[in-house]
C-alpha cells in the first residue's frame, strides 16, 4: 500500500478485507478490498452513513458479511472465534458502558478477560485523562466517557486498534489528549491503528494511509502523501475557445468568465508548463487540504456512478 512505509514485520498485514459485501435494506457495502500494513496508522474518511462503521464491525466479527473474507492478525474474523479479539482493541462511538457501575468495575471486568492487562499503564491513563476510578459512568461527560472506553482498550496493549470515530464530540483539549495517546502506542512498530473519522484534520495529522469511503464503496485509498502531493488546484486565465490539454486526471471544477479552476489528482511538476503551453495563463497553483481532496474525490466518484 505504501512505498514509504514498508511493513517492518514481514509480509503479514495486520488486517485485510477481500471482496467484502454486505446488504442491508437501505444500504449496500460493495466489494471492499483493504489491507492495513503492520505498524501503520490508517484513516477511514467518509460522510456519516458511508459504511465506515459497518466495515469496522465486520472486521471485529460483530457483523457477518454476505460475501468476502476478512483476516485479522492472520486469523479469520468471525463471531464464533474469540482468539483474534484477544489482541484487538475496538472502540466505537455508539458503544456504552454500564451506567450504574464505576470505571473501576469496568477495569476489573476487562482485566479479568485479558492476561496481558497492564495495570500500571491503566493507572497512568486514569491520571493523564483526569478520570477517577470510583466515578460512575452515568456521571461522566461525553469526553470522559470516550476516555474511559479508550483506557479500557489501551491498557490491554492491543496489537491492533480499531477505532470508530473516537474523537467525535470531543472538545479540542480532550481530542488532542486522545490523539497524542494513540500516537504513543505506535511507537512500538508492531502495533497498528485503523481509525475512522469524518474530521479530515485528525486523519491528516496522524494517519500514514488514508481511505475514502462513500456510499458503501472505497473510492480512493493511498498513503497520506500520495493524496497531498497528487492533488493540485490551478486557477487559469483562458479565452472561451481554450481547450484544456489532455493530461491524466485533469478536470475542470468551475469557470467564471475567463477564469477557470482546474484540479488534478495525478500531479507532476511539469503540469503547469503544459497548461501554459496550451495557451492559458496560470494565476495560481495550490496544494489542497485533505478535506478539499476528499470533497473533490467524493464529487468525482458520485458523478462517475451516475454516468
Amino acid at each position: 500500500m505504501s512505498a514509504v512505509l514498508d511493513p517492518p514485520l514481514g509480509a503479514i498485514a495486520a488486517a485485510s478485507l477481500r471482496g467484502v459485501s454486505k446488504t442491508y435494506r437501505h444500504f449496500h457495502l460493495r466489494d471492499i478490498d483493504l489491507e492495513f500494513a503492520t505498524g501503520t496508522v490508517n484513516g477511514l474518511i467518509g460522510p456519516n452513513g458511508a459504511g465506515k462503521s459497518t466495515i469496522m464491525r465486520i472486521m471485529m466479527g460483530l457483523v457477518r458479511p454476505d460475501r468476502g473474507t476478512v483476516a485479522m492478525l492472520g486469523r479469520p474474523a468471525s463471531s464464533s472465534e474469540s482468539s483474534a479479539k484477544r489482541e484487538i482493541g475496538y472502540f466505537s462511538e455508539d458503544m456504552r458502558l454500564y451506567k450504574a457501575e464505576t470505571i473501576a468495575f469496568h477495569m476489573q471486568f476487562v482485566r479479568s478477560l485479558f492476561p496481558d492487562w497492564d495495570e500500571r499503564y491503566a493507572e497512568e491513563l486514569l491520571d493523564r485523562f483526569g478520570l477517577i476510578a470510583k466515578q460512575k459512568i452515568k456521571g461522566l461527560s461525553q469526553g470522559q466517557r470516550v476516555k474511559a472506553l479508550l483506557l479500557l482498550v489501551l491498557a490491554r496493549r492491543p496489537k491492533l486498534l480499531i477505532l470508530d470515530e473516537p474523537t467525535n464530540g470531543l472538545d479540542p483539549v480532550a481530542k488532542q489528549e486522545v490523539l497524542s495517546e494513540l500516537m504513543q502506542t505506535v511507537k512500538d512498530e508492531a502495533r497498528t491503528i485503523v481509525y475512522s473519522s469524518h474530521h479530515t484534520q485528525d486523519i491528516e495529522q496522524i494517519c500514514d494511509t488514508i481511505t475514502f469511503v462513500d456510499r458503501g464503496r472505497v473510492i480512493a485509498s493511498d498513503d497520506r502523501d500520495g493524496f497531498l502531493n497528487g492533488w493540485r488546484r490551478f486557477r487559469l486565465q483562458a479565452p472561451g475557445s481554450w481547450v484544456p490539454p489532455q493530461i491524466a486526471g485533469l478536470r475542470a471544477e468551475a469557470s467564471f468568465g475567463n477564469l477557470r479552476v482546474m484540479t488534478i489528482d495525478r500531479y507532476r511538476p511539469d503540469v503547469e508548463e503544459q497548461l501554459e503551453a496550451s495557451g492559458a495563463t496560470l494565476e495560481g497553483s495550490e496544494a489542497m487540504t485533505l478535506e478539499e481532496i476528499f470533497l473533490a474525490t467524493v464529487t468525482r466518484g458520485r458523478e462517475e456512478c451516475r454516468r
Binding site: 512505509l5 505498524g39 501503520t40 500516537m183 511507537k187 495529522q205 496522524i206 500514514d208 497520506r224 502523501d225
Partner: peptide, 8 residues
C-alpha cells in the same frame, strides 16, 4: 508520537 503526527 511526541508530536502526535503520522509516522510518514
Amino acid at each position: 508520537a511526541d508530536l502526535s503526527v503520522s509516522v510518514i
